[in-house]
Design a protein around this nucleic acid. Sequence first.
DNA 1: TAAACTATGTATAACTT
DNA 2: TAAGTTATACATAGTTT
Lengths: 198, 198
Amino acid sequence: MGRRKVEIERIENKSSRQVTFSKRRKGLIEKARQLSILCESSIAVLAVSGSGKLYNAASGDNMSKIIDRYEIHQADELKALDLAEKIRNYLPHKEILEIVQSKLEEPNVDTVSVDSLISMEEQLETTLSVIRAKKTELMMEEVKSLQETEMLLREENQILASHSQLGKNTFLVTEGERGMARENGSGNKVPETLALLK
Amino acid sequence: MGRRKVEIERIENKSSRQVTFSKRRKGLIEKARQLSILCESSIAVLAVSGSGKLYNAASGDNMSKIIDRYEIHQADELKALDLAEKIRNYLPHKEILEIVQSKLEEPNVDTVSVDSLISMEEQLETTLSVIRAKKTELMMEEVKSLQETEMLLREENQILASHSQLGKNTFLVTEGERGMARENGSGNKVPETLALLK
DNA sequence: TAAACTATGTATAACTT
DNA sequence: TAAGTTATACATAGTTT
Protein backbone atom coordinates (compact mmCIF):
# COMPACT_ATOMS: atom_id res chain seq x y z
CA MET A 1 0.00 0.00 0.00
CA GLY A 2 2.91 2.28 -0.37
CA ARG A 3 5.56 3.05 -2.94
CA ARG A 4 6.89 -0.46 -2.60
CA LYS A 5 5.94 -3.75 -1.04
CA VAL A 6 7.11 -4.06 2.51
CA GLU A 7 7.80 -7.31 4.31
CA ILE A 8 5.96 -7.89 7.56
CA GLU A 9 8.91 -7.99 9.87
CA ARG A 10 10.29 -5.71 12.54
CA ILE A 11 11.32 -2.35 11.11
CA GLU A 12 14.90 -1.92 12.20
CA ASN A 13 15.18 1.83 11.81
CA LYS A 14 13.84 3.33 14.99
CA SER A 15 12.39 6.51 13.59
CA SER A 16 10.64 4.85 10.65
CA ARG A 17 9.32 2.33 13.11
CA GLN A 18 7.80 5.13 15.13
CA VAL A 19 6.39 6.86 12.09
CA THR A 20 4.86 3.63 10.88
CA PHE A 21 3.46 2.90 14.32
CA SER A 22 1.77 6.26 14.38
CA LYS A 23 0.35 6.00 10.84
CA ARG A 24 -0.80 2.43 11.06
CA ARG A 25 -2.23 2.83 14.53
CA LYS A 26 -4.34 5.69 13.24
CA GLY A 27 -5.41 3.54 10.28
CA LEU A 28 -6.27 0.63 12.52
CA ILE A 29 -8.44 2.75 14.78
CA GLU A 30 -10.20 4.26 11.78
CA LYS A 31 -10.92 0.78 10.45
CA ALA A 32 -12.29 -0.21 13.83
CA ARG A 33 -14.53 2.84 13.82
CA GLN A 34 -15.84 2.03 10.36
CA LEU A 35 -16.50 -1.59 11.22
CA SER A 36 -18.32 -0.53 14.33
CA ILE A 37 -20.63 1.75 12.38
CA LEU A 38 -21.10 -0.34 9.25
CA CYS A 39 -21.95 -3.48 11.16
CA GLU A 40 -23.47 -2.01 14.31
CA SER A 41 -20.90 -3.68 16.52
CA SER A 42 -18.64 -2.81 19.41
CA ILE A 43 -14.95 -2.74 18.63
CA ALA A 44 -12.08 -2.09 20.99
CA VAL A 45 -8.48 -1.60 20.03
CA LEU A 46 -5.67 -1.53 22.56
CA ALA A 47 -2.13 -0.80 21.45
CA VAL A 48 0.99 -0.82 23.57
CA SER A 49 3.93 0.73 21.76
CA GLY A 50 7.42 -0.66 22.03
CA SER A 51 8.18 2.10 24.50
CA GLY A 52 5.28 0.98 26.67
CA LYS A 53 2.87 3.77 25.88
CA LEU A 54 -0.76 2.75 25.78
CA TYR A 55 -3.24 3.82 23.13
CA ASN A 56 -6.81 2.70 23.16
CA ALA A 57 -9.99 3.25 21.30
CA ALA A 58 -13.41 1.75 21.67
CA SER A 59 -16.19 2.41 19.27
CA GLY A 60 -19.84 1.58 19.40
CA ASP A 61 -19.62 1.04 23.11
CA ASN A 62 -17.31 1.85 25.94
CA MET A 63 -14.06 0.05 26.60
CA SER A 64 -14.95 -1.31 30.03
CA LYS A 65 -18.07 -2.87 28.70
CA ILE A 66 -16.22 -4.63 25.91
CA ILE A 67 -13.51 -5.79 28.28
CA ASP A 68 -16.14 -7.05 30.71
CA ARG A 69 -17.67 -8.94 27.84
CA TYR A 70 -14.31 -10.49 27.06
CA GLU A 71 -13.66 -11.45 30.66
CA ILE A 72 -17.05 -13.08 30.98
CA HIS A 73 -16.33 -14.97 27.81
CA GLN A 74 -13.01 -16.19 29.22
CA ALA A 75 -14.56 -17.12 32.53
CA ASP A 76 -17.18 -19.13 30.70
CA GLU A 77 -14.57 -21.03 28.78
CA LEU A 78 -12.77 -21.91 31.96
CA LYS A 79 -15.96 -22.99 33.62
CA ALA A 80 -16.98 -25.02 30.59
CA LEU A 81 -14.53 -27.66 31.73
CA ASP A 82 -16.96 -28.76 34.34
CA LEU A 83 -19.91 -26.57 33.70
CA ALA A 84 -22.52 -29.24 33.16
CA GLU A 85 -21.84 -30.85 36.49
CA LYS A 86 -21.71 -27.59 38.36
CA ILE A 87 -25.02 -26.56 36.95
CA ARG A 88 -26.54 -29.92 37.73
CA ASN A 89 -25.61 -29.38 41.35
CA TYR A 90 -27.62 -26.22 41.36
CA LEU A 91 -30.71 -27.72 39.80
CA PRO A 92 -32.34 -28.63 43.15
CA HIS A 93 -32.66 -24.96 44.01
CA LYS A 94 -35.91 -24.54 42.21
CA GLU A 95 -36.85 -21.35 43.98
CA ILE A 96 -33.78 -19.63 42.64
CA LEU A 97 -34.39 -20.99 39.19
CA GLU A 98 -37.93 -19.80 39.26
CA ILE A 99 -36.93 -16.33 40.27
CA VAL A 100 -34.31 -16.20 37.57
CA GLN A 101 -36.65 -17.55 34.96
CA SER A 102 -39.44 -15.20 35.82
CA LYS A 103 -36.96 -12.38 35.55
CA LEU A 104 -35.99 -13.60 32.13
CA GLU A 105 -39.63 -14.07 31.25
CA GLU A 106 -39.37 -17.64 30.14
CA PRO A 107 -42.30 -19.98 30.66
CA ASN A 108 -41.12 -23.59 31.18
CA VAL A 109 -39.24 -24.22 34.40
CA ASP A 110 -39.20 -27.98 34.19
CA THR A 111 -37.85 -28.31 30.70
CA VAL A 112 -34.87 -26.12 31.38
CA SER A 113 -31.79 -27.33 29.54
CA VAL A 114 -28.14 -26.85 30.34
CA ASP A 115 -27.87 -24.71 27.23
CA SER A 116 -30.58 -22.38 28.35
CA LEU A 117 -28.97 -22.15 31.78
CA ILE A 118 -25.70 -21.19 30.13
CA SER A 119 -27.49 -18.56 28.19
CA MET A 120 -29.28 -17.30 31.29
CA GLU A 121 -26.03 -17.19 33.19
CA GLU A 122 -24.46 -15.19 30.43
CA GLN A 123 -27.34 -12.75 30.30
CA LEU A 124 -27.28 -12.21 34.02
CA GLU A 125 -23.54 -11.76 34.12
CA THR A 126 -23.64 -9.31 31.27
CA THR A 127 -26.38 -7.35 32.96
CA LEU A 128 -24.45 -7.41 36.20
CA SER A 129 -21.24 -6.06 34.71
CA VAL A 130 -23.12 -3.38 32.90
CA ILE A 131 -24.82 -2.36 36.13
CA ARG A 132 -21.56 -2.41 38.05
CA ALA A 133 -19.74 -0.41 35.42
CA LYS A 134 -22.56 2.09 35.33
CA LYS A 135 -22.66 2.35 39.11
CA THR A 136 -18.97 3.11 39.28
CA GLU A 137 -19.16 5.53 36.41
CA LEU A 138 -22.04 7.45 37.95
CA MET A 139 -20.37 7.58 41.33
CA MET A 140 -17.14 8.81 39.84
CA GLU A 141 -19.02 11.49 37.94
CA GLU A 142 -20.84 12.43 41.09
CA VAL A 143 -17.70 12.72 43.19
CA LYS A 144 -15.98 14.75 40.52
CA SER A 145 -18.95 17.03 40.12
CA LEU A 146 -19.29 17.55 43.86
CA GLN A 147 -15.61 18.32 44.19
CA GLU A 148 -15.89 20.94 41.49
CA THR A 149 -18.97 22.42 43.10
CA GLU A 150 -17.20 22.57 46.42
CA MET A 151 -14.27 24.37 44.90
CA LEU A 152 -16.50 26.92 43.19
CA LEU A 153 -18.57 27.50 46.29
CA ARG A 154 -15.45 28.08 48.33
CA GLU A 155 -14.23 30.60 45.80
CA GLU A 156 -17.55 32.37 45.67
CA ASN A 157 -17.74 32.32 49.42
CA GLN A 158 -14.33 33.83 49.75
CA ILE A 159 -15.18 36.55 47.30
CA LEU A 160 -18.42 37.33 49.06
CA ALA A 161 -16.67 37.43 52.39
CA SER A 162 -14.13 39.89 51.14
CA HIS A 163 -16.60 41.92 49.13
CA SER A 164 -17.93 44.01 52.02
CA GLN A 165 -14.41 45.30 52.50
CA LEU A 166 -13.05 45.46 48.99
CA GLY A 167 -14.01 44.71 45.46
CA LYS A 168 -11.10 45.47 43.25
CA ASN A 169 -10.68 42.57 40.89
CA THR A 170 -14.24 41.40 40.95
CA PHE A 171 -16.59 41.75 38.04
CA LEU A 172 -20.27 41.36 38.55
CA VAL A 173 -22.39 39.63 36.00
CA THR A 174 -26.02 39.14 36.84
CA GLU A 175 -27.49 36.33 34.92
CA GLY A 176 -30.64 34.32 35.35
CA GLU A 177 -30.28 30.59 35.77
CA ARG A 178 -26.61 30.05 35.40
CA GLY A 179 -25.82 29.77 39.05
CA MET A 180 -28.62 27.29 39.50
CA ALA A 181 -27.73 24.88 36.78
CA ARG A 182 -25.43 22.98 39.05
CA GLU A 183 -28.20 22.16 41.48
CA ASN A 184 -30.19 20.46 38.78
CA GLY A 185 -27.35 18.24 37.67
CA SER A 186 -26.96 14.56 38.33
CA GLY A 187 -26.07 15.36 41.90
CA ASN A 188 -29.27 14.38 43.57
CA LYS A 189 -30.24 11.63 41.26
CA VAL A 190 -27.27 9.38 41.71
CA PRO A 191 -27.77 8.29 45.31
CA GLU A 192 -31.31 7.19 44.48
CA THR A 193 -30.03 5.08 41.65
CA LEU A 194 -27.29 3.65 43.78
CA ALA A 195 -29.67 2.47 46.44
CA LEU A 196 -31.18 0.17 43.84
CA LEU A 197 -27.85 -1.12 42.68
CA LYS A 198 -26.74 -2.59 45.92
CA MET B 1 -11.79 -0.25 -1.59
CA GLY B 2 -14.35 -2.19 -3.50
CA ARG B 3 -16.30 -1.89 -6.67
CA ARG B 4 -17.80 1.34 -5.44
CA LYS B 5 -17.35 3.81 -2.62
CA VAL B 6 -19.41 2.93 0.40
CA GLU B 7 -20.70 5.42 2.96
CA ILE B 8 -19.77 4.74 6.57
CA GLU B 9 -23.21 4.14 7.96
CA ARG B 10 -25.09 1.13 9.22
CA ILE B 11 -25.56 -1.45 6.45
CA GLU B 12 -29.28 -2.08 6.39
CA ASN B 13 -29.28 -5.44 4.64
CA LYS B 14 -28.69 -8.01 7.30
CA SER B 15 -26.78 -10.56 5.27
CA SER B 16 -24.46 -8.04 3.63
CA ARG B 17 -23.91 -6.62 7.09
CA GLN B 18 -22.80 -10.02 8.30
CA VAL B 19 -20.60 -10.62 5.29
CA THR B 20 -18.98 -7.22 5.71
CA PHE B 21 -18.52 -7.84 9.42
CA SER B 22 -16.72 -11.05 8.68
CA LYS B 23 -14.52 -9.62 5.92
CA ARG B 24 -13.61 -6.43 7.69
CA ARG B 25 -13.08 -8.10 11.04
CA LYS B 26 -10.58 -10.39 9.37
CA GLY B 27 -8.92 -7.38 7.75
CA LEU B 28 -8.79 -5.49 11.03
CA ILE B 29 -7.16 -8.38 12.83
CA GLU B 30 -4.63 -8.81 10.03
CA LYS B 31 -3.77 -5.10 10.26
CA ALA B 32 -3.32 -5.47 13.99
CA ARG B 33 -1.02 -8.43 13.45
CA GLN B 34 1.09 -6.50 10.95
CA LEU B 35 1.33 -3.45 13.19
CA SER B 36 2.38 -5.64 16.05
CA ILE B 37 5.21 -7.21 14.07
CA LEU B 38 6.35 -4.17 12.12
CA CYS B 39 6.55 -1.95 15.18
CA GLU B 40 7.30 -4.53 17.86
CA SER B 41 4.19 -3.63 19.82
CA SER B 42 1.31 -5.37 21.53
CA ILE B 43 -2.05 -4.96 19.90
CA ALA B 44 -5.40 -6.30 21.05
CA VAL B 45 -8.63 -6.23 19.12
CA LEU B 46 -11.97 -7.08 20.65
CA ALA B 47 -15.08 -7.18 18.52
CA VAL B 48 -18.61 -7.80 19.66
CA SER B 49 -20.94 -8.44 16.75
CA GLY B 50 -24.44 -7.06 16.64
CA SER B 51 -25.69 -10.48 17.66
CA GLY B 52 -23.47 -10.38 20.73
CA LYS B 53 -20.81 -12.80 19.60
CA LEU B 54 -17.31 -11.98 20.76
CA TYR B 55 -14.20 -12.16 18.62
CA ASN B 56 -10.81 -11.29 19.93
CA ALA B 57 -7.23 -11.28 18.86
CA ALA B 58 -4.10 -10.19 20.58
CA SER B 59 -0.77 -10.08 18.90
CA GLY B 60 2.68 -9.51 20.23
CA ASP B 61 1.51 -10.34 23.68
CA ASN B 62 -1.39 -12.04 25.32
CA MET B 63 -4.79 -10.45 25.74
CA SER B 64 -4.88 -10.49 29.53
CA LYS B 65 -1.57 -8.71 29.74
CA ILE B 66 -2.75 -5.96 27.42
CA ILE B 67 -6.02 -5.62 29.26
CA ASP B 68 -4.14 -5.47 32.56
CA ARG B 69 -2.05 -2.72 31.09
CA TYR B 70 -5.21 -0.86 30.15
CA GLU B 71 -6.74 -1.33 33.57
CA ILE B 72 -3.61 -0.10 35.29
CA HIS B 73 -3.76 2.92 33.03
CA GLN B 74 -7.37 3.49 34.04
CA ALA B 75 -6.55 2.97 37.70
CA ASP B 76 -3.95 5.69 37.40
CA GLU B 77 -6.63 8.05 36.25
CA LEU B 78 -8.76 6.98 39.18
CA LYS B 79 -5.94 7.94 41.48
CA ALA B 80 -6.50 11.54 40.57
CA LEU B 81 -9.59 11.40 42.73
CA ASP B 82 -7.59 9.91 45.55
CA LEU B 83 -9.96 7.00 45.78
CA ALA B 84 -7.76 4.20 44.55
CA GLU B 85 -5.43 4.58 47.48
CA LYS B 86 -8.26 4.65 49.94
CA ILE B 87 -9.68 1.49 48.47
CA ARG B 88 -6.31 -0.15 48.59
CA ASN B 89 -6.01 0.61 52.27
CA TYR B 90 -9.20 -1.22 52.92
CA LEU B 91 -8.20 -4.40 51.14
CA PRO B 92 -9.21 -6.92 53.75
CA HIS B 93 -8.23 -10.28 52.40
CA LYS B 94 -4.56 -9.93 51.84
CA GLU B 95 -3.98 -13.48 52.90
CA ILE B 96 -6.25 -14.82 50.21
CA LEU B 97 -4.56 -12.71 47.60
CA GLU B 98 -1.23 -14.07 48.69
CA ILE B 99 -2.45 -17.64 48.54
CA VAL B 100 -3.83 -17.12 45.07
CA GLN B 101 -0.67 -15.46 43.91
CA SER B 102 1.48 -18.26 45.20
CA LYS B 103 -0.77 -20.74 43.41
CA LEU B 104 -0.42 -18.85 40.20
CA GLU B 105 3.32 -18.71 40.55
CA GLU B 106 3.60 -22.45 40.95
CA PRO B 107 5.66 -23.99 38.15
CA ASN B 108 3.04 -26.38 36.82
CA VAL B 109 0.19 -24.01 36.27
CA ASP B 110 -1.09 -26.18 33.47
CA THR B 111 -1.58 -29.17 35.69
CA VAL B 112 -3.65 -27.36 38.29
CA SER B 113 -6.76 -29.40 38.87
CA VAL B 114 -10.25 -28.24 38.02
CA ASP B 115 -11.16 -28.53 41.70
CA SER B 116 -8.42 -26.21 42.81
CA LEU B 117 -9.36 -23.77 40.04
CA ILE B 118 -12.94 -23.80 41.26
CA SER B 119 -11.75 -23.16 44.78
CA MET B 120 -9.52 -20.33 43.60
CA GLU B 121 -12.35 -18.90 41.61
CA GLU B 122 -14.59 -18.90 44.66
CA GLN B 123 -11.96 -17.28 46.82
CA LEU B 124 -11.34 -14.64 44.21
CA GLU B 125 -15.00 -13.96 43.78
CA THR B 126 -15.42 -13.54 47.50
CA THR B 127 -12.51 -11.13 47.61
CA LEU B 128 -13.91 -9.31 44.63
CA SER B 129 -17.29 -8.81 46.29
CA VAL B 130 -15.62 -7.50 49.39
CA ILE B 131 -13.58 -5.08 47.34
CA ARG B 132 -16.62 -3.96 45.39
CA ALA B 133 -18.66 -3.48 48.52
CA LYS B 134 -15.84 -1.49 50.07
CA LYS B 135 -15.47 0.60 46.96
CA THR B 136 -19.18 1.39 46.94
CA GLU B 137 -19.16 2.16 50.64
CA LEU B 138 -16.21 4.52 50.33
CA MET B 139 -17.67 6.27 47.36
CA MET B 140 -21.02 6.65 49.09
CA GLU B 141 -19.27 8.13 52.12
CA GLU B 142 -17.34 10.47 49.91
CA VAL B 143 -20.50 11.58 48.13
CA LYS B 144 -22.35 12.07 51.40
CA SER B 145 -19.54 14.05 52.88
CA LEU B 146 -19.23 16.21 49.80
CA GLN B 147 -22.97 16.82 49.76
CA GLU B 148 -22.88 17.94 53.39
CA THR B 149 -19.99 20.24 52.68
CA GLU B 150 -21.87 21.66 49.74
CA MET B 151 -24.94 22.34 51.81
CA LEU B 152 -22.93 24.09 54.51
CA LEU B 153 -21.11 26.18 51.97
CA ARG B 154 -24.38 27.17 50.31
CA GLU B 155 -25.83 28.24 53.66
CA GLU B 156 -22.75 30.23 54.54
CA ASN B 157 -22.78 31.69 51.08
CA GLN B 158 -26.40 32.78 51.39
CA ILE B 159 -25.78 34.44 54.72
CA LEU B 160 -22.80 36.28 53.34
CA ALA B 161 -24.77 37.30 50.28
CA SER B 162 -27.60 38.71 52.35
CA HIS B 163 -25.11 40.83 54.26
CA SER B 164 -23.75 42.30 51.11
CA GLN B 165 -25.51 43.97 48.22
CA LEU B 166 -25.07 40.98 46.01
CA GLY B 167 -28.06 38.88 45.17
CA LYS B 168 -28.24 35.14 45.03
CA ASN B 169 -28.36 35.01 41.28
CA THR B 170 -25.19 36.96 40.91
CA PHE B 171 -22.60 35.30 38.79
CA LEU B 172 -19.19 36.17 40.07
CA VAL B 173 -16.28 36.34 37.72
CA THR B 174 -12.88 36.97 39.11
CA GLU B 175 -10.02 38.21 37.06
CA GLY B 176 -8.26 35.55 35.06
CA GLU B 177 -9.41 32.14 34.09
CA ARG B 178 -10.91 30.86 37.29
CA GLY B 179 -14.31 32.27 36.70
CA MET B 180 -14.58 30.19 33.57
CA ALA B 181 -14.60 27.00 35.53
CA ARG B 182 -18.34 27.27 35.93
CA GLU B 183 -18.91 26.98 32.23
CA ASN B 184 -16.71 23.95 31.92
CA GLY B 185 -17.91 22.35 35.08
CA SER B 186 -19.81 19.17 35.57
CA GLY B 187 -22.96 20.77 34.33
CA ASN B 188 -22.01 19.93 30.82
CA LYS B 189 -20.74 16.48 31.58
CA VAL B 190 -23.88 15.03 32.96
CA PRO B 191 -25.73 14.79 29.67
CA GLU B 192 -22.83 12.80 28.27
CA THR B 193 -23.21 10.37 31.09
CA LEU B 194 -26.90 10.11 30.55
CA ALA B 195 -26.41 9.42 26.90
CA LEU B 196 -24.48 6.34 27.91
CA LEU B 197 -27.39 5.01 29.87
CA LYS B 198 -29.11 4.04 26.69
C1' DT C 1 -25.11 -20.13 1.23
C1' DA C 2 -20.60 -19.60 0.85
C1' DA C 3 -16.22 -19.30 -1.35
C1' DA C 4 -13.58 -17.22 -5.08
C1' DC C 5 -12.87 -13.43 -8.12
C1' DT C 6 -11.80 -8.81 -9.68
C1' DA C 7 -12.49 -3.88 -10.36
C1' DT C 8 -11.84 -0.13 -7.71
C1' DG C 9 -11.33 2.72 -3.52
C1' DT C 10 -8.14 3.18 0.39
C1' DA C 11 -4.06 3.01 3.23
C1' DT C 12 0.39 3.91 3.39
C1' DA C 13 5.90 3.82 2.04
C1' DA C 14 8.64 6.76 0.15
C1' DC C 15 9.17 11.27 -1.23
C1' DT C 16 8.89 16.36 -0.67
C1' DT C 17 8.76 20.62 1.77
C1' DT D 1 12.00 16.71 12.36
C1' DA D 2 7.42 16.83 11.26
C1' DA D 3 3.65 17.58 8.19
C1' DG D 4 1.90 17.10 3.65
C1' DT D 5 1.95 14.74 -1.03
C1' DT D 6 1.95 10.98 -4.29
C1' DA D 7 2.61 6.55 -6.36
C1' DT D 8 1.52 2.07 -5.47
C1' DA D 9 0.19 -2.16 -2.94
C1' DC D 10 -3.60 -3.75 -0.53
C1' DA D 11 -8.42 -4.38 1.13
C1' DT D 12 -12.75 -5.09 -0.09
C1' DA D 13 -17.80 -4.25 -2.53
C1' DG D 14 -20.05 -6.24 -5.77
C1' DT D 15 -20.00 -10.17 -8.88
C1' DT D 16 -19.56 -14.85 -10.28
C1' DT D 17 -19.38 -19.68 -9.47
